[in-house]
Simulated scan of single mutants.
Amino acid sequence: MTTTSPDRETTAERLLTASTRRSYDPLVAIDWEAPFTPGAFWMPPERSSLYGTELWAAMSHDQRVELTKHEVAGAASAGIWFETVLMQMLIREFYDQDVTSRHAQYALAEVADECRHSIMFGRLIERLGVAPTRASRRDHALGRWLKATATGAHMYASILLAEEILDAFQREVMADEALQPLIRMVARIHVVEEARHVRYAREELVRQVEKSGPLRLAYSRIVIGQAAAAVISRLVHPDIYRAVGIDGSRGRAAALANPHFRATIRWSAAKAVEHLGRLGLVSGPALVYWRRAHLV
């Protein structure tokens, strides 16, 4: 059974208190039947993966709006995929902890948050009237592997990376009054609750790195790099482009080669990459995965 340090318990106590004060049930906090705003985008158009490309230039306004709708649905699908993995990692970690510790109890509070978030994202996809995107065989296998084996530094780094990327997009969405009200409300709820998760992961990651040996850290760097590449891969799923009449492979290739989108994903991951870099987790052979994902 693991022990807890005073600073870890202090953080967890504060996060548990914050959870009681600011948590939402998306099934009642969101008006799921409210009509959509005609012509409004679902994300800032300059954050679209095809913004600035020839494909974007050839699209009408309505087609661009439709593309951002499918990109939002794709991101929500990826969010459910990752949150399902995250919940299983946290529960597996909880299994070996002192159940009376605040640190362990906050892990359960985070799992409760993620359950609601996954329901919220699923309801969003349904309301958009589109099909969820499925993880590739490679990403599906990676998720199964992470949920079954990830511990220590690479577990918390993977959590932090995915949460920080989604958080960056959603902070911008929630503040943009020109966007669809539904997506702004979904983003607002997720940002408020994910702020607690980010702090929990950031502080615990530092502790895990400090107690890891060089071989363990070398392994963690590889796993973290693979997780980073998987997160970005889910944002350019071929089905997103097929849904708006673009060949899936062509759309994905155009997105990954798009300098605007490369800048966007570097922006979205900047805080996480900086934190991981300071801890020595973005280096060595694992850099091939970060470069493949255009994150460094």
Rank of each mutant, 00 (worst) to 15 (best):
T10F: 10
T11D: 05
A12T: 00
A12S: 08
A12Q: 05
E13K: 09
L16V: 08
L16T: 12
T17Y: 12
T17D: 15
S19V: 06
T20L: 12
T20S: 09
R22E: 10
Y24V: 02
D25E: 13
P26H: 00
L27T: 14
L27N: 12
L27G: 12
V28G: 03
A29S: 15
A29V: 04
D31A: 10
W32H: 03
E33R: 09
A34V: 02
F36L: 07
F36P: 01
T37F: 01
P38Y: 09
P38Q: 09
P38H: 07
G39C: 02
A40M: 14
F41N: 08
W42T: 00
M43L: 15
P44A: 09
P45K: 08
E46D: 15
E46H: 15
R47C: 07
R47H: 12
R47L: 13
R47I: 00
S48V: 04
L50K: 09
L50H: 08
Y51T: 05
Y51G: 07
G52N: 01
G52D: 04
G52H: 04
T53R: 02
T53S: 14
T53F: 02
E54H: 04
L55A: 02
W56S: 08
W56Q: 09
A57V: 01
A57Y: 00
A58N: 07
A58E: 07
M59N: 04
S60E: 09
H61K: 09
Q63S: 07
Q63T: 01
R64Q: 13
R64N: 05
E66K: 13
E66Q: 13
